[in-house]
């Protein structure tokens, strides 16, 4: 059911990766992504995957979770793989049958692209596995806050993200409940054609909307009662402070990036 979604799941822990400043973690993720896209050959990707694997092991997140994070995007990997396999016609042909032609270049590109996507997902998953959503939101707010000068609503965006994160589980639970209730009244959501099924959603969507609005209204009231008046003059319980370990992590990551660039020169695919 809907409850099984693992994207954005957070695994509390005390590893050094968990304790890094979330802003730095965001920066590291960006450098890592740059690393993946500058790597033009397998040796470069190998360096990036070593980096990722090391980070995963240090974080103490079970490797199983890494595989689990890939599962939902498997169809995308397979789809792009097939496209690469069939539509790249350069290189030596391996198989030729009627209009189908598979070349060694095609196979290589397929593996390369798949590896790149997998590494990309693993890296970003590691970010969400080791950083609580609220800390992440906080980091985004602080990174964006210089933009407040040009009236960019950094605080408002972060507040919205926080509230969304807070209410997603509540609304999922509610959806389950409403579905059961309508099923008990004989609503049929599993059979019929597309239009029929779309119509069958009405008894679920309307109550869900009504409830979401009611919650929003009550929440707004509760926030007002607790003196909420936007981001102005707000302080925070948790202050973000960078520590030496944050700088060390940045340096290590930059070394890997440099390595990838150097390796590119020696292994052009």
């Amino acid at each position: 059911m809907i409850k099984d979604i693992t994207i954005g799941q957070f695994f509390p822990g005390k590893s050094i990766i968990h304790r890094l400043d979330p802003r730095i973690k965001l920066l590291l993720t960006v450098i890592y992504i740059v690393m993946l896209f500058t790597a033009s050959g397998f040796t470069g990707l190998l360096a990036a995957s070593l980096y990722m694997l090391a980070a995963f092991i240090i974080s103490g997140i079970p490797i199983k979770m890494m595989l689990k994070s890939i599962k939902p995007i498997l169809p995308i990997i397979i789809f792009t793989g097939i496209l690469n396999l069939f539509f790249i016609s350069s290189g030596d042909p391996l198989v030729e049958w009627h209009f189908i032609k598979i070349t060694d270049d095609g196979v290589r590109t397929m593996i390369f692209m798949a590896a790149r996507i997998i590494l990309l997902i693993c890296g970003t998953s590691l970010l969400t596995y080791t950083t609580s959503p609220i800390t992440l939101t906080d980091a985004i707010e602080r990174i964006l806050s210089p933009l407040k000068v040009i009236k960019f609503p950094a605080h408002e965006i972060a507040m919205m993200m926080t509230i969304a994160l807070r209410f997603i589980p509540t609304l999922i639970e509610e959806t389950d409940k409403i579905m059961s209730a309508q099923k008990a009244r004989g609503a049929d959501m599993e059979s019929g054609n597309l239009i029929h099924r779309a119509k069958a959603l009405i008894p679920i969507l309307i109550p869900l909307f009504v409830s979401a609005f009611r919650r929003a209204e009550e929440l707004a009231l509760a926030m007002e009662c607790r003196c909420y008046h936007g981001g102005e003059g707000r302080t925070r319980l948790k202050q973000l402070k960078t520590a030496p370990r944050d700088y060390v992590a940045v340096v290590i990551t930059l070394i890997f990036l440099a390595a990838v660039i150097v390796l590119n020169m020696f292994s052009p695919i």
Binding site: A181, A184, G186, P203, P207
Partner: peptide
């Protein structure tokens, strides 16, 4: 299933039709 009617907690949160009549008729219609 139609032999057993189940009224959930806070059942008013599952009302959805335009009129009370239509809402009460939802089950019998199904």
């Amino acid at each position: 299933r139609f032999k057993v009617g189940l009224v959930f907690q806070y059942p008013e949160y599952q009302l959805f039709e335009e009129t009370v009549y239509k809402d009460i008729a939802f089950g019998p219609k199904n």
